[in-house]
Design a binder for these strands. Structure first.
Lengths: 178, 178
DNA sequence: TATTGTTATACTCTATAACTATA
DNA sequence: TATAGTTATAGAGTATAACAATA
């Protein structure tokens, strides 16, 4: 008796706002949950900033990495992003299909590709980066004095959490041929 | 000429560690990217803590919510977690299939379910919550004095970011029948 | 024998659209 | 007409396994 989903269904999905009347128990006190809420909010926010380009946060990161490390291999890209080889492949497929990047022969190794942005990709990325950076500055501004401290604490948190699970000797020295 | 994937392929996938020699460009300065790194690390870390129970962070959150709000509807659960109805359905399906929770008739509305933990679910959750809480405390301890400030800043960040995209009148007053 | 990239496949997460039964 | 839940389906995202070409 209904045509399709109703008007009141305009519920902003993905928005993880605290719902009044709901008891969140220990979630409210957890660092991990606070992080998830914040990340969720930022994710949605990113899409607003990058709406014009139709690029996800992950793809944006890939673009920046390729731009700053021209000729990098697919495998290295995956490594830098915590992806499996096959994931890096799909990511690269998308970037090339959309005209952002291209695969060229890698000098010295006939098996590998060197990744590069296309001319159009470089042009577009310049604007996209500006938009994202402006966006990030707005967030920092909204945080006031807490901003810089937050950034530092996040970096440290990533380090502490990985240290607990992997316990490498040093933060930097990793990812090398065994 | 290889049987399957080789020994050196034990690359901890999903681990988003900074790779030495790679230039991350503006990513290193972005709040959003720092957040993603931290969240990624915490996610993997959570799995260590909850390995014994085979529960994802999201499912853990659902369990806590149901435990603290017995009889809550599927729809409300989805709302609290930023999920679509169909997502809440699948989540609930999993929780019931695993014996964590059960659907009972909701008093007053024959269309709706009331969600409840099972007796076994309550018992298991008590231990799981203890493990997760201990884990979170360890993270906070690792952060030292930065810890509490980080938590506060994250809460504020989530608020700032959603404010920029939705601009509601007040943080709390939302999500009500129009 | 190990590595780079590929193909094929599968599983998770989450959305949309359309449907049912209530309200 | 709107809502709660459901079904079916599709799309990301990411993993595993097996393979080819190259190292």
């Amino acid at each position: 008796m209904s045509k399709t989903d109703s008007p009141a269904d305009i519920t902003p999905e993905g928005l993880m706002l605290p719902v009044p009347g709901v008891d969140y128990g220990l979630l409210d006190g957890l660092l991990g949950y606070a992080l998830r809420r914040a990340q969720n909010a930022l994710y949605l926010d990113f899409y607003r900033a990058a709406a014009e380009w139709d690029v996800s946060p992950q793809r944006f990161a890939a673009l920046v990495l390729i731009a700053r490390n021209p000729g990098m291999r697919q495998g290295l890209l995956g490594q830098a992003m915590g992806l499996h080889r096959s994931g890096a492949l799909r990511l690269t497929d998308w970037l090339t299909a959309q005209g952002w990047a291209e695969r060229r022969d890698a000098p010295g190794d006939a098996r590998a590709w060197g990744l590069h942005l296309t001319a159009a990709g470089k042009r577009r990325l310049a604007k996209l980066e500006a938009a994202v950076a402006a966006h990030d500055r707005a967030l920092l501004a909204g945080l006031g004095e807490q901003g810089p401290a937050l950034k530092a604490a996040l970096d440290r948190l990533a380090w502490v959490a990985t240290a607990q699970s992997t316990t490498p000797e040093k933060p930097t020295t990793r990812r090398h041929k065994p």
